[in-house]
Structures are given as structure tokens and as C-alpha cells.
């Protein structure tokens, strides 16, 4: 029993050590945790970063994530904004590389229009049903209620 616990602990240590030692050995990219000097540019970058998905931790935006790769993406975004690139051009650059999944911003496309149309169709259907019901109620003189 003791031996198996020891074996387990040493296995765990062996597995954990290289990861813990290595992930942090490189400094973060220049603009991963550093804001741009120009507040207007920083605001632009921030707004964009909040709508880009972190590919390592997929329910977080790169603005929220502490994954090293998200830091590298933030740095890339800030440097491109500082160089005068438009936020939507940067988004398009990333979508070209990772597909639509990288962006949180909803886009109206042939594939996505049902998402936008469905609520309108449902509301219209509800209105139609309600109208018929009220008419019927009026006709039978409150018998329905």
C-alpha cells in the first residue's frame, strides 16, 4: 500500500515537474500585459480582444485569458492596431487562419441568417395566434375566459 502511494506520488511529481518548470520560463510578449500609450488605440484594441476567442480556453476571450497563447494574440492585436490597422481587418486576418469560430461577433451570413430570422418568425406566429384567440373571445362574448 505504502509502496503504491509512493509510486503514485513520484509518478505525479515526474509528470508535473517539467510542465510547471517550463510554461513560465519565457517572458510574455511585449504587449500581452502592457496597454498601448494612446488611450483611443488601446480602447479599440480592447474592444476587439473582447470579441476574439482564445483557442486554448475556448469559452474565454483573449482579453480574459491568461494562456500564453492568448497573451501572444493580444500582443499581436495591439501591435497591429498601433501600426494603424483597422480592427475589422485584424479580425478578418484571424478568421482567415482559424475560421469563424475565432470571432465572437455575430455576422449575418447565408449560414447564420436563420438565427436572426427565427425570433422574428416566432414573434409573428405568436401575434397571429393571439389575434385569432382574441377574435374568438370577442365573438363568443367572453365565453373562453
Amino acid at each position: 500500500m505504502t509502496r503504491s502511494i509512493l509510486a503514485f506520488v513520484s509518478l505525479w511529481l515526474a509528470a508535473a515537474a517539467p510542465v510547471a518548470a517550463a510554461q513560465d520560463s519565457m517572458p510574455p510578449a511585449p504587449y500581452a500585459y502592457t496597454q498601448l500609450d494612446d488611450p483611443a488605440q488601446e480602447a479599440e484594441a480592447q474592444a476587439l480582444m473582447e470579441t476574439l476567442r482564445c483557442v486554448r480556453c475556448q469559452s474565454q476571450s483573449i482579453a480574459d485569458s491568461d494562456a500564453p497563447m492568448a497573451g501572444d494574440m493580444r500582443s499581436q492585436v495591439r501591435m497591429r492596431i498601433a501600426a494603424g490597422e483597422e480592427p475589422e481587418a485584424i479580425r478578418a486576418w484571424l478568421v482567415d487562419r482559424y475560421g469563424d469560430y475565432i470571432s465572437y461577433k455575430p455576422e449575418l451570413k447565408p449560414l447564420t441568417w436563420p438565427l436572426f430570422a427565427a425570433p422574428v418568425v416566432l414573434a409573428a406566429l405568436a401575434a397571429l395566434l393571439l389575434r385569432r384567440r382574441f377574435r374568438k373571445g370577442a365573438r363568443t362574448g367572453g365565453d373562453v375566459a
Binding site: P68, M69, D72, M73, L94, D96, R97
Partner: peptide, 14 residues
Amino acid sequence: DDVSAVQLGIGSSG
């Protein structure tokens, strides 16, 4: 590649 530049450039996610 110290800032994952090539990785991002080719759409690699890990």
C-alpha cells in the same frame, strides 16, 4: 518563435 507569430500565422492552435 518567442511570441507564437508563426503559429498564429498558420492557424495552429496548440
